[in-house]
């Protein structure tokens, strides 16, 4: 297992510059792109001069750029992500309040993606070049082509306005205890099954909307990696050995899993950005909803805070994917 340890250490070392890069880019967007960041953060043209001056002092905006970057990182590390001029609260607190809702939605979408897309991809591969394969392909392309905001509205129209079986907006009822901040999990842990059912019905439409583009992507990757695995020599060997049925498919699928996991990790990051649109339409109280409100209120510290958070989560998810990858595939470690 020694090589695994070295691999993980190596991967963690490269993780540091990536994080610094994310910080640097958000810093550049917030400090260097606008002509007068202090005025922008205070809310644009209508900002009071004394507020602008205060922000300039507080964030060292009179110093040279590299000194500013140093203070920026120092502030971030000490938990000071700035304060929202709209909610009058520290950004980090706002984000901590809104993040669990987004996280819950992203998890639900990922589960949906896995249980729909992977079987679709496998069927598509085994029925290669048949009408089923073509339909899955068309479905996948439609998934990445549909505007998420439009899909959301249409789903609301069908399932709320026409059929009346699912709620159109909101997150449901808050469980009486909060262990994790995830309503579904908390209501189960508290034993409140009626709330669980309500909350589950609330998450279905947003989760479908958010998962829809990813379903196509994952189905395609699954199809292609299953086909790749089937054309490899060890599968020929397995066939020659007389493996069939379940045993045979197990060999194929195990080897097809690796690219699927990578893409799944990438998709999780995209779910966070898709959440910006989805949450707005379903009034889901997550960071996406928070970001859009911030955009409309010209609340720049909040916009930058959200951008930074999503960038960091994206990078961390990629790290986790790489580690899982190394655990299941010994070839990667060398």
């Amino acid at each position: 297992m020694a090589e695994l340890k070295y691999y993980l250490i190596r991967r963690l070392i490269t993780f540091v510059p990536t994080i610094l890069g994310v910080l640097l880019l958000v810093f550049v967007i917030s400090h260097a792109v606008p002509a007068d960041p202090a005025r922008l953060w205070a809310g644009g043209e209508k900002a009071k001069p004394e507020v602008v001056e205060m922000i300039r002092e507080k964030y060292h905006l009179n110093e040279p750029m590299h000194i500013q970057f140093y203070y920026y990182i120092k502030d971030l590390l000490s938990g000071n992500w700035g304060e929202s001029p709209v909610t009058k609260r520290p950004i980090l607190e706002d984000l901590a309040d809104y993040f669990p809702a987004t996280f819950e939605l992203a998890i639900a979408s990922t589960i949906l993606m896995v249980i729909v897309a992977i079987p679709l991809g496998i069927i598509s591969a085994f029925k290669r070049d048949t009408i089923i394969d073509h339909l899955v392909r068309l479905f996948a392309l439609m998934g990445i082509s549909v505007p998420v905001f439009w899909l959301a509205i249409i789903l609301q129209w069908i399932f709320y306005y026409q059929l009346g079986i699912l709620p159109a907006t909101g997150r449901g009822i808050e469980p009486s205890v909060s262990y994790t901040g995830l309503y579904l999990l908390d209501s189960l842990l508290a034993g409140e099954f009626d709330k669980f059912v309500t909350n589950l019905s609330h998450i279905i439409l947003p989760a479908i909307t958010l998962a829809f583009p990813g379903i196509g992507v994952i189905a395609r990757i699954t199809r292609n990696s299953v086909l790749d695995a089937m054309s490899s020599e060890f599968i020929d060997f397995a066939e020659a050995r007389g493996l069939h049925g379940f045993q045979f498919y197990r060999h194929v699928l195990k080897n097809a899993m690796i690219p699927i996991i990578t893409v799944l990790g990438l998709q999780f990051g995209f779910l966070l950005s898709g959440a910006v649109i989805t949450e707005t339409i379903f009034a889901w109280p997550g960071i996406g909803n928070y970001a859009v409100k911030a955009i409309n209120a010209l609340d720049y510290p909040a916009i930058m805070g959200t951008t930074l958070l999503i960038g960091l989560v994206f990078v961390i998810v990629n790290l986790v994917v790489d580690v899982i990858y190394a655990l299941i595939d010994p070839r990667i470690r060398f």
């Binding site: 510059p17 990536t18 890069g21 994310v22 640097l24 880019l25 958000v26 967007i29 917030s30 792109v33 606008p34 922008l40 990051g269 995209f270 966070l272 950005s273 898709g274 910006v276 649109i277 970001a291 955009i295 720049y300 916009i303 930058m304 959200t306 951008t307 999503i310 960038g311 994206f314 990078v315 990629n318």
Partner: peptide, 23 residues
């Protein structure tokens, strides 16, 4: 490539939102 990697460590929509909100 390092600069490219930095840009690719964000989902496209989020980065576009940050840039265009600032501009």
């Amino acid at each position: 490539m390092r600069i490219t990697d930095i840009f690719l460590s964000f989902p496209a929509l989020i980065l576009a939102i940050a840039f265009s909100a600032t501009l």
